[in-house]
Nucleic acid binder design. Structure first.
Lengths: 194, 194
DNA sequence: TGGGGATGTATCGGCTCGATACATCGACGC
DNA sequence: GCGTCGATGTATCGAGCCGATACATCCCCA
């Protein structure tokens, strides 16, 4: 399919353009400054994504004052369309595995300020469950292992477990903060559906 | 190219089969138990990789006692060939970006017991440089940012920086340990060529 | 006046994943 | 005996995404 970039880049681009119109190069810089610790987007996926979003009418080329155009160079500045804003809201509303897997969680989190409190909470909890599943899986596999492991393998396991445990603790704090914040303003404790 | 899986899976498979012959399903389970905290291999890449390694003569199907074959089922057990062992040694000797990037570092580390001390040290240092580059890039980008960031973005940055700083500290300890270990047994400090 | 580095758009090859399909095995109840 | 259910097991396909690369311009500085 020509341009169904489908996943995380779409949200990242739409979310960035929601702040201000940007061109590809600058967009990538911002994205990598924002998420550089977790992932790095490349042009090989960014430009096809932009083309796809353009074809879908979710973004549009902005034509600024002609004075800004230097020489014959075209600096293609993209901005969000009304449809794009709708689509962004739609993406921000979805709380599912696509939001809390490794590759996508960071991007969703980065745009939490545009996300409803309830969705935020569900994504954080989903992420936590995901990590706990992983901890369980590795721990049981480790316990089931008969052979003695060498010190490097052990050290790798230890470091991995510790890192994931740390992230779970971080999520716990965030979840607690979210709960406190939502219990204050609206004392609605009965609507804890699902 | 039909089957040039090229990168990290090759080492993971070869390294696992070096311990003991395995079939695909079990191979994947072991790999994911070993590296589950960092990455998860899928059949979609494992089986093509096995086919490719088979075609290259680096692994071979093991034909055990016919009694093991239940019914018409073929449980394809792979073992390392002599060429495969050579190739494994070759892969374990290489200390380059391919060894210390995110996706591959864990796999290389997991087989450090088969790696020469000098190569281990270079991979650990390369990994550390890589992470420090990333820290620098994000820190300068952060310092250069004019607009005020919302609390979620800030928290994401903080958490990301802290995680990477932690890994750098971990690497520092490992490097120190390696250095101590290599200075004790052989007091050869002159042969630090390249 | 010319070289180097940042800016800028774009593509191609190919690795890898998630989903899926299909088949068998052992255990369990009835 | 018979259905079924979960674990075991091999295999492929569509599609996303990255790394490398190419090419052009801008601007600074010597």
């Amino acid at each position: 399919m020509a341009g169904g970039q489908g996943r995380v880049l779409e949200l990242a681009v739409l979310g960035s353009l929601h702040e201000t119109p940007l061109h590809g190069y600058e967009l990538r810089k911002r994205l990598n400054a924002l998420l550089g610790m977790f992932r790095a987007f490349s042009y090989g996926s960014l430009y096809p994504c932009l083309r796809s979003l353009l074809a879908q009418g979710l973004i549009a080329e902005e034509q600024p004052a002609p004075a800004t155009m230097v020489g014959g160079r075209s600096k293609i500045v993209y901005k969000l369309t009304a449809e794009g804003k709708e689509r962004l809201q739609e993406l921000l509303t979805q709380a599912g595995p696509a939001a809390w897997e490794d590759e996508s969680f960071g991007v969703h989190f980065a745009f939490f300020r545009h996300t409803e409190a309830e969705v935020r909470l569900r994504i954080l909890e989903g992420r936590r469950s995901r990590l706990e599943e992983r901890l369980d899986a590795v721990r049981t596999a480790l316990a089931r292992t008969r052979e003695r492991l060498d010190s490097y393998t052990l050290e790798l396991q230890r470091h991995g477990l510790e890192s994931v445990e740390r992230e779970v603790r971080w999520l716990n704090e965030l979840i607690a903060t979210e709960r406190r914040a939502s219990e204050g303003p609206e004392r609605d404790t009965t609507s804890t559906d699902e």
